[in-house]
Design a protein around this nucleic acid. Sequence first.
DNA 1: CTGGATCCCTCACGATACTG
DNA 2: CAGTATCGTGAGGGATCCAG
Lengths: 216, 216
Amino acid sequence: MARRSYGQICGLSRALELVGERWALLIIRDLVASPKRFTDLRQGLARIPTNVLSARLKELEQSGVLQRRILPRPATAVVYELTPYGRQLDGILLDLGRWGAQSLGPPGPDDIYTPDSLMMAMRACYQGDGTGASVAEPVSYELRVHDIVISLTVRNGQLGVAGGSLPDPDLVIETGPGFAALVTGRMSPSEAIENGSVRLTGDPRLLTEFANTFRI
Amino acid sequence: MARRSYGQICGLSRALELVGERWALLIIRDLVASPKRFTDLRQGLARIPTNVLSARLKELEQSGVLQRRILPRPATAVVYELTPYGRQLDGILLDLGRWGAQSLGPPGPDDIYTPDSLMMAMRACYQGDGTGASVAEPVSYELRVHDIVISLTVRNGQLGVAGGSLPDPDLVIETGPGFAALVTGRMSPSEAIENGSVRLTGDPRLLTEFANTFRI
DNA sequence: CTGGATCCCTCACGATACTG
DNA sequence: CAGTATCGTGAGGGATCCAG
């Protein structure tokens, strides 16, 4: 093989040979949340050419980072899911995301949000310590940013994240670009409500709890 | 610019735009140990074309990951060094190196060791807890793998790593390819001494201490 | 000698169209 | 839905050359 090797005996070099190609880590990011089909990945990554997605999936499967699985019954569907080895990248992706977020400039006109990137972002800024010391647990939020929807649940200090709606959230938070200001602390919850940056359905006092739970 | 953007509002995407290009993270790995000149980097990365090294250094400087500095006196030399922002990647690089090292196969004929990759590897498998609870502190090792030499010092539970020799090491460890077996625990210190995988200069009992301190 | 710049070639990537 | 086929472009690889 010897394809595109860096020629060094080094764990980092090896890691980059496995997941350092363009788009690879973003594919893995999307698979961290849940196994996905080709078309789901294509949609979540928007600008990825299908041949590149094909190539990456083959390479990552061969490397043992993910596996291709054929769903048995009703529908003959193919899904890609991380192996245990691939799942070990989760924490690293969160760290790298936090690092990159520090230099995130204003969004360009063509830049998009995706459910999986928002889910990763919320996990990255989750402040829970696993002790369940928070005041209002268990609590569930539905978060709507532009046209994407994810659900967050905090129970026993553990954060659960899922795409789409969950039944009976304690608080629904609808927001737009100003959402970042809330999480970074540049805008207080009361300010956010007053100037219309967020629209709430549920107990408004929970927004303060939310802003304390998720903070960069 | 907008060149090579992933088109997503996401910390991870941003991180990959900054340091996801080929060779970028290896350049940063080498700069973690110490500021370096163009030629030092070129040597540590062996297979990197000079134009690519040039391009990466410019991009990373523009991104605020590293800075170019001109040494004032005796020699007019240019060095590249990480900014505080770039230095934040240190822990992530260690994690990623540990992850990749798990799937590191047998070295190819043209694969090389470099001082910086060995230094990173030793930092990655350092088991100290910062408490200085170890038995033999302070202790210093000189590690020779093939033709590269690095120095390790453990004091107050803190690991210090440097390229080249330091005066009066407590133990000099000369080894070859079998070194990995010692650190992974596949070979015990006494075995390693018996079958000639390592040659020691100094107190041989310190090899057990070494094997406990550095373990993958 | 360091610190690059320049040239050329190849292949990976990007965009789009198309198929089982 | 899950990819493959085709083709243009530009980044990476490799060698050489040049200024201070």
